Computed example of a mutant assay.
Amino acid sequence: MAFDKILWVVNYDKLSDFVAEASAAKVTGVAIRTDNDLDAAITAFHAKNIKVYGWRWPSAKEDAAMKEAAKAVALFGKGLDGYYVDPEGEKGKPYDWDLPGLGPLAAKFSQTIANAAAGKPYGVTSHYRGKAQHKNLPWAEFFQHATVLLPQAYWRVEGGVVGHGDPADNYAQALKFWKATGGKLERIKPMAGEIAFAKPAEINAYAAAAAANHVSELHFYTATDTVKPAVWAAIAAL
């Protein structure tokens, strides 16, 4: 199966280095957090025929959330290829979306960006267990306008093993949980991560799970200086 491969990044030291890294990994797109210089990134990556998506875990406070939505709208006007929102449950943080009453804000945020996307991807990512993990998060309002759903089917992170540490099992669980959360199965594209703690065989197992489920879109979170060369090589070879 031919895959679209999207490499996520939080921050990078030099845009030119990240362009070279993504090009060597033979990805078709990059997802860059919107506190980076997306204007420059769009120009640089489009020159390499690599798509650029913005992403962010936005504040659950209306003024700050809609400021992020306005930033996304402006970036679509500059050639952004899509946007992914990452609502999380973080108790006590301004970006804690796992609270009652946030449905109207989630709907307003999502519709604003989806309208600007005008058919380009608007995606939602969060914990792979979905509503089973964050019961008060306004899933329906975020999902309503989403064209792609991206559960974080990570099998190993900085804090240790996730689930059984099995990429194929976590992939299957992500599909199950996000369908139960209200996602349309054909839109669910589970993510791999955290690739700094992954092994090459696990990258291959993740891709095999996608292929077995007829999913041609792979997402890798996240590019860091500690990703092993063999893992980069495995991603490039897919």
Rank of each mutant, 00 (worst) to 15 (best):
K91G: 08
F18W: 11
K61Y: 06
E186Q: 14
A64G: 01
R33W: 07
A230P: 12
G130C: 14
D225V: 09
D96P: 05
A69K: 04
N213L: 10
I32F: 03
W155S: 14
D35V: 13
A209K: 03
Y53P: 01
A118H: 01
T112E: 02
G160Y: 03
R187L: 14
R156I: 15
F177H: 13
P138V: 11
S216F: 14
R129F: 13
A205T: 15
V215Q: 13
V85N: 04
N213M: 11
F109A: 04
W97M: 10
G183T: 08
A60N: 08
W232C: 04
T125L: 10
M66D: 00
H145L: 02
I32H: 00
P94K: 07
A234I: 13
L38D: 04
K71Q: 13
A72G: 01
N36G: 08
Q152G: 08
V124F: 02
L175R: 06
H219P: 04
G54M: 07
S59T: 13
V161K: 09
S16D: 13
K78C: 06
G54D: 02
E62T: 12
K48E: 15
A69G: 03
L75G: 02
D37M: 05
T226A: 14
F143L: 15
M191H: 01
K71V: 12
E141M: 10
